[in-house]
């Protein structure tokens, strides 16, 4: 599998789209550093390909969310902060605010295995954003969301990006989300799977 060179500016969105099974998640995992890849990945001009995972500061929403089953929703959301030291009252307030904005305040202490698919998706999104990442990698972030929650999630992300403009690479699972930005579209090139860059 190959891909065109691409760059994503601060606050910009890069949508990865391709048929099911093409390798969108593999591409995203290679950006995360979970799958070996040839090439370079620079964030703010700094080569990060050789960095250990925990030093990259990537905010990630996995396809299956990968929430920690032994923690409740709030503790999942605070994990990225907690691993870097103490969680301040301000951090808790920000977390609560995020839960409120995404309509999850009543589920803030719920064990994650009691959450619905859409709720889990939103908790994963809060977790990815709350610790202040330098890059967002979102694997089907809007999956399982109804129209109302999709709007609240978009608002939340836009709000975050306006305060902390970081690049966003995301995989869409349906067309017509209305998210502006470049696109990496999967297709065939000389018998090989290839992601081609399309500008808006």
């Amino acid at each position: 599998m190959t891909a065109d060179d691409f760059d994503v500016g601060p606050g910009e969105w890069l949508e990865v789209s391709a048929p099911s099974g093409f390798g969108k998640s593999t591409l995203l995992r290679s950006l995360m550093g979970l799958t070996p890849v040839e090439g370079q990945l620079r964030v703010s001009g700094v080569e990060v390909s050789g960095q250990p995972l925990h030093r990259r500061r990537f905010g990630v929403v996995f396809q299956d969310q990968a929430l920690f089953a032994h923690l409740n929703a709030l503790d999942n959301a605070l994990f990225g902060l907690r691993i870097r030291g103490r969680v301040s009252d301000g951090d808790r307030a920000r977390a609560e605010d995020a839960f409120r904005k995404l309509g999850l305040l009543h589920r803030i202490r719920a064990p994650v295995d009691e959450l619905s698919g859409g709720e889990r998706q939103r908790v994963a999104l809060i977790r990815a954003v709350l610790f202040g990442p330098v890059l967002l990698l979102l694997d089907e972030p809007f999956k399982g969301l109804d129209a109302e929650h999709l709007r609240s999630v978009m608002d939340y992300l836009q709000s975050f990006l306006s305060e902390s403009p970081v690049p966003v690479v995301w995989i869409s699972h349906l067309n017509g989300t209305g998210v502006p930005g470049k696109r990496l579209v999967g297709g065939d090139r000389n018998g090989r799977r290839h992601f081609q860059l399309h500008h808006p």
Partner: peptide, 17 residues
């Protein structure tokens, strides 16, 4: 399930994860 990877990407060193 990606939990370890998620923890690593959230900043946890391997042992902590």
């Amino acid at each position: 399930t990606g939990e370890i990877e998620a923890a690593r990407l959230l900043g946890a060193p391997a042992a902590s994860a």
